[in-house]
């Protein structure tokens, strides 16, 4: 049986809650840390932008400034979300050498999200895993999850949703027409749910954490040893991870590396050159912004967003 480390960060400031696991992943990749599960709640609210998203197109930056909401770009794809202490995050970070962690992303989700399903079922809800990366109750999403990799470290992050402020979730988004905000909030109510909405109350966070630990030990067949972040991890976080996430370059990364992304639909930018934006609905939305010359791709960029209930 593998011994893994359990780090309960309690309530942590947004950058720690959102990014500290990257320091652990870097430490694992460098052979400095063991396989680890982190449990944490954001101590204060923030807005979390997907890896591929363009800040100014997705987030109402002015509103966030007025509200004092930090905007953090995560290292995983997906859409913009408003996060606060109404979520309990779990962050699983393991070396690819671990015998209990699948290397294929679909298998990773399928195995590790059994734990999320276990927690919700123990709390009395008919939760189900919905491929690729969702857990649903009555067809409504009740947990958001993402996977990643840093060197040799395999990562799965996700949350147990205690409660949701649908109106605020819609408020932080950039929407071309204000009339759409109510519709957006309504659509979220239709497709996303929470423990409070399903149970009528919020179970204690201690109970949820206890169930998560139980679930990981049972389903992964590991022993979790409570511990704290190492000096190495704290150093990596302060000197590498946090400065990267707080930098202008990281927050504006897609538009700085792909200037054509700031252009809407089809625009002629020079003789013989134009930029076209198309959206294709596959299992996820695929958005392609391409610089086209004749019928040749000159430079293009794509990203996709999670479609609730898709």
């Amino acid at each position: 049986m593998e011994n893994w480390r359990l780090i309960d960060l309690g309530m942590a400031e947004p950058y720690v809650a959102q990014c500290f696991y990257e320091a652990v992943a870097l430490a694992i990749d460098r052979g400095l840390s063991p396989n680890t599960i982190i449990l944490v709640q954001p101590a204060s609210p923030y807005v979390c932008l997907g890896y591929h998203q363009i800040l100014e197109k997705e987030v109402d930056v002015e509103f966030c400034k007025k509200q004092g909401l930090p905007i953090i770009r995560r290292s995983q794809g997906g859409g913009t979300v408003y996060l606060n202490n109404d979520q309990v995050f779990y962050q699983v970070v393991a070396s690819e050498d671990s015998k209990v962690i699948p290397h294929r992303v679909d298998e990773l989700f399928e195995k590790l999200l059994q734990v999320t399903v276990y927690v919700y079922r123990k709390l009395g809800l008919e939760a189900e895993f919905k491929p690729l990366n969702d857990v649903v109750v009555n067809n409504r999403k009740i947990s958001g999850n993402g996977a990643g990799r840093i060197g040799k470290a395999i990562i799965l992050v996700g949350n147990i949703i205690l409660d949701l402020d649908y109106d605020l979730m819609a408020r932080v988004l950039k929407i071309p027409d204000e009339k759409f905000r109510d519709k957006m909030a309504k659509s979220m109510r239709e497709w996303v749910t929470s423990l409070k909405r399903e149970l009528g109350y919020i179970p204690s966070v201690d109970e949820i954490k206890k169930l998560l630990v139980e679930g990981y030990e049972k389903i992964l067949g590991i022993k979790l040893i409570p511990s704290s972040p190492s000096e190495d991890e704290l150093h990596i976080f302060e000197n590498e991870v946090k400065p990267k996430h707080m930098s202008y370059e990281w927050l504006h990364m897609p538009e700085l590396t792909h200037r054509e992304l700031t252009i809407d639909r089809a625009v002629k930018i020079a003789d013989g050159v134009k930029v076209i934006e198309v959206v294709h609905k596959a299992k996820k939305l695929i958005k392609v912004t391409a610089e086209v010359i004749g019928d040749k791709i000159f430079g293009y960029y794509d990203y996709w967003r999670l479609l609730y209930g898709s």
Binding site: F109, V278, D302
Partner: peptide, 19 residues
């Protein structure tokens, strides 16, 4: 996972329809 190469190609080929 869930988005095979064909889906990306379908999306990219929409550029041609547009042009």
């Amino acid at each position: 996972p869930g988005i095979p190469a064909e889906d990306f190609a379908d999306a990219i080929m929409k550029l041609k329809e547009y042009t």
